[in-house]
């Protein structure tokens, strides 16, 4: 199956949960005030997405059509509660930063969306790949938006990364400008909308340019040369 390439291309770029499907905006705005927060939330969501997809796909023949949505929600809510307790127990420092937001994963439409659109119809392995790809795409979006807001808002990058990844990753923590007074708007939720808007516009421009290059390349074939 070379389909997996397509699944990953979908998850990371073409059908990215944030940049293409516009899902998951609620947790996105809440946590992406720094790149580290975005990364932590993204990874936690990826774990939930992967587990939800695998479980739902392997039970897809047992779940009756009529009750599939409540069953999905039940399973996802249970998984998020598990993630919440596991992070609290083993990554307590991170929990103090992210704890408030982990229950938000339940409200992340991307998880339910993948369960409904993909995992309930596809075999287990493909569903696992889809969960992973969508999750990584979401993580990418959260880290990029978090990084933009952090750089503009407080002139740091990956601050407190050692809380998330362990002391070995303390080198990621950079302060770009000493004694930066801060750009409040970027740290507050409106900053999230602004950055998302600019990134979406950027993605559209990129795609349109690619289209134009493609059609320009195809052009000479269509119109016979004189």
């Amino acid at each position: 199956m070379n389909d997996y390439r397509g699944i990953f291309a979908d998850g990371l770029w073409r059908n990215n949960a944030v940049f293409a499907q516009m899902l998951a905006l609620c947790p996105l705005m809440a946590v992406t005030s720094s790149a580290t927060n975005g990364l932590g939330m993204g990874l936690a969501t990826t774990a939930v997405l992967l587990a939800a997809n695998v479980i739902i796909s392997s039970l897809r023949h047992l779940i009756a059509q009529e009750v599939r949505i409540p069953v999905f929600i039940l399973l996802i809510a249970a998984l998020v509660t598990l993630a919440d307790m596991v992070i609290n127990a083993w990554l307590h420092e991170l929990y103090k930063v992210l704890g408030l937001f982990i229950p938000l994963i339940v409200a992340n439409c991307a998880v339910l969306g993948r369960a409904e659109a993909f995992a309930s119809r596809q075999p287990v392995l493909a569903s696992a790949a889809d969960g992973l790809a969508m999750g990584l795409g979401l993580t990418l979006a959260m880290v990029v938006i978090g990084a933009c807001r952090e750089i503009l808002g407080s002139a740091t990058l990956f601050s407190q990364a050692s809380l998330l990844l362990g002391d070995g990753f303390a080198f990621l923590e950079t302060t770009l400008i000493q004694d930066y007074k801060g750009f409040l708007l970027m740290v507050l939720p409106p900053g999230g909308f602004l950055v998302l808007g600019f990134l979406l516009a950027g993605k559209r421009v990129l795609e349109q340019r690619r289209e134009r290059v493609k059609s320009a390349a195809a052009g000479p074939v269509d119109s016979p040369a004189h």
Partner: peptide
């Protein structure tokens, strides 16, 4: 109802 109940118990 049975399916939903069993998933609730599982969860």
């Amino acid at each position: 109802a049975l399916i939903l109940a069993s998933f609730a118990i599982l969860g």
